[in-house]
Design a protein around this nucleic acid. Structure first.
Length: 198
DNA sequence: ACGATGATTGTCT
DNA sequence: GACAATCATCGTC
């Protein structure tokens, strides 16, 4: 990773949340130097019923309404998940980070995910937060200004369309038709798909 | 103050 | 693939 990597600009996040979800693929998410390359995201917007922001601002979802580039961390069941707020201040929108490939601090990741197989270390939104040590205390952090424990390093270049697959979001019961889930095809995933056809 | 409700995960069949 | 675990948040009484 380049030592000169700057954080993404505010303008990057203050765009259509679906575009940001797409363009975040390949970015590296780190907490205290532990993390990896984002390979799966989902977009959520206040105008559709699956979004936490659909009901308007509450204490829990307040971070979604902050200016683009803030962290929204929430708890679901026994786990926490992380989003990055998008679009203008006052608009409830965010990108859920669903999966990443660990590239930094593998020892920490392995220790925090002890018991799980390496393939399952960070292949879910709750799993990756545990692996990186992201907690509710990180909610509301501004990733553009920086200074906090969480960093988001932009991809070297926008992932080519040929490597991106869009599809319906998972784990929800409303607005299930919107194709707002994005996955980055890894070399490893391609190999895996070739060996295990659907 | 009380009850319904998950943007999930791990385990068992 | 199905299913239970388990608790803070939020709306309602």
């Amino acid at each position: 990773m380049s030592a000169t990597a700057r954080p993404l600009a505010r303008a990057f996040f203050e765009r259509d949340v679906v575009a940001v979800a797409r363009d975040l693929l390949g970015a590296v998410l780190l907490r205290d130097g532990v993390g990896g390359r984002i390979v799966e995201t989902e977009a959520y917007h206040e105008r559709e019923a699956a979004s936490h922001a659909f009901v308007g601002p509450t204490r829990r979802n307040a971070s979604l309404f902050l200016p683009g580039g803030h962290l929204y961390v929430y708890r679901i069941h026994q786990v926490v998940c992380a989003n990055v707020s998008c679009e203008a201040e006052g608009t409830g929108a965010g990108v859920l980070v669903r999966a990443l490939v660990p590239t930094h601090g593998l020892e920490q990741v392995a220790a925090r995910r002890a018991g799980a197989r390496p393939r399952a270390w960070t292949d879910g939104p709750g799993k990756l937060c545990r692996a990186l040590g992201i907690t509710l205390a990180d909610d509301g952090q501004d990733l553009v200004v920086g200074g906090g424990p969480v960093r988001l390093v932009p991809p070297a270049r926008r992932a080519p369309d040929a490597q991106v697959v869009a599809g319906p979001r998972v784990g929800i019961s409303k607005a299930v038709d919107l194709p707002w889930r994005f996955r980055l095809l890894d070399v490893d995933e391609e190999v895996h798909s070739a060996r295990m056809p659907p």
